[in-house]
């Protein structure tokens, strides 16, 4: 059913504005964006303003409850928990962010190629992706990091590789849908090159899905990085890896629960926040347009 619109169209809002409007509309999305912005600012500017060096030990003052001097208390070595949480946020964003970005970029490329060409290439790639997905992620990560040694870069690589299959499959399914559309056929009729068709015709229509999926991968990546950190496979101490902080704090839980609470809460809140953002993006960017224009 095509709905005719009057010819004197009202001002067409810019894309960003419609996204902003879309965000405003849903409380959860607003909360999500607020949380993410807060943590992002913390990651970028926080380390410049923290009251203590994250590695500074003060054994006499160990396991102190939150106070004016140490708003999140101190840990088993007398280090300021607040400073460690703030500095640790940078690690989370960089490592999880880079991992997710890696997955998105490679997944985009593979999905485009696989979806558009189909045939044997598609079959082989998809079987490969399925094999990768069949192996439990955490175990695979542990295996790789044990053998390669865990460092900043190896964790990013592992996290990135783990999520390539999902992104590939999403992109591929979108491409499969779009490549049958008339405007792609019109492009073929014009004799456009494959590059043009893939990157100028198909890709812009894949981007909304990619944004949504990418944000979802970021959620998983944060959690994965925290889990690896918990197992001691993240960055090495005394670097403030939130997951490792939780693991270190566990024996003291009955005596000094704040040491565990703050990093764990940070992980949880950030994950929930990004998750809300992802849901919000899904609502706004898909399926096409701001929904107030539609009525049955």
């Amino acid at each position: 059913m095509a709905i005719c619109i009057q010819s004197n169209q009202e001002y067409r809002h810019s894309k960003l504005f419609s996204i902003w409007r879309g965000i405003r509309r849903n409380t959860l999305t607003v909360i999500g964006f607020f949380i993410v912005t807060l943590f992002l600012l913390m990651a970028i500017f926080g380390p410049l303003f923290v009251p203590y060096d994250y590695a500074e030990q003060n054994i006499e003052k160990r396991l102190q409850p939150p106070s004016a001097e140490h708003i999140f208390g101190t840990d088993e070595f007398g280090r300021d928990v607040f400073s460690r949480v703030v500095v640790g946020s940078r690690n989370v964003f960089i490592v999880a962010g880079s991992g997710a970005a890696l997955a998105v970029l490679l997944g985009l490329f593979l999905g485009l190629v696989s979806g558009y060409w189909g045939g044997l290439l598609d079959d082989v790639l998809m079987r490969l992706m399925e094999v990768m997905m069949a192996i439990p992620g955490l175990l695979l990560a542990m295996l790789v990091l044990f053998s390669l040694g865990s460092s900043f870069y190896s964790v990013i690589l592992v996290v990135g590789f783990m999520y390539i299959p999902v992104v590939t499959r999403v992109v591929r399914s979108v491409v499969l849908d779009i490549k049958t559309r008339a405007f792609v056929e019109a492009a073929k009729l014009r004799g456009e090159s494959i590059g043009y068709i893939l990157f100028r015709e198909i890709l812009p229509n894949v981007l909304p899905h990619l944004a949504v999926e990418g944000s979802m991968r970021f959620v998983y990546a944060i959690f994965m990085v925290a889990s690896l950190g918990f197992l001691g496979l993240g960055v090495q101490p005394p670097a403030p890896d939130w997951g490792f902080m939780v693991s270190e704090a566990r024996p003291f839980f009955s005596v000094a629960p704040w040491v565990l609470f703050f990093p764990a809460a940070s992980i949880a809140i950030l994950v929930v926040g990004v998750s809300f953002v992802s849901d919000g993006l899904r609502r706004i960017l898909l399926p096409g347009g701001v929904s107030s224009d539609r009525y049955a």
């Binding site: 405007f183 019109a186 229509n205």
Partner: peptide, 28 residues
């Protein structure tokens, strides 16, 4: 196959499709 035709040949034959929503790239 259209890919094997010359640009002049491609120009000569054009097509209008059934579904107007799908014949234009929504991003341009």
């Amino acid at each position: 196959s259209v890919a094997k035709r010359t640009p002049a040949q491609r120009k000569s034959i054009q097509m209008v499709f059934q579904n107007p929503d799908a014949s234009l790239n929504p991003h341009y």
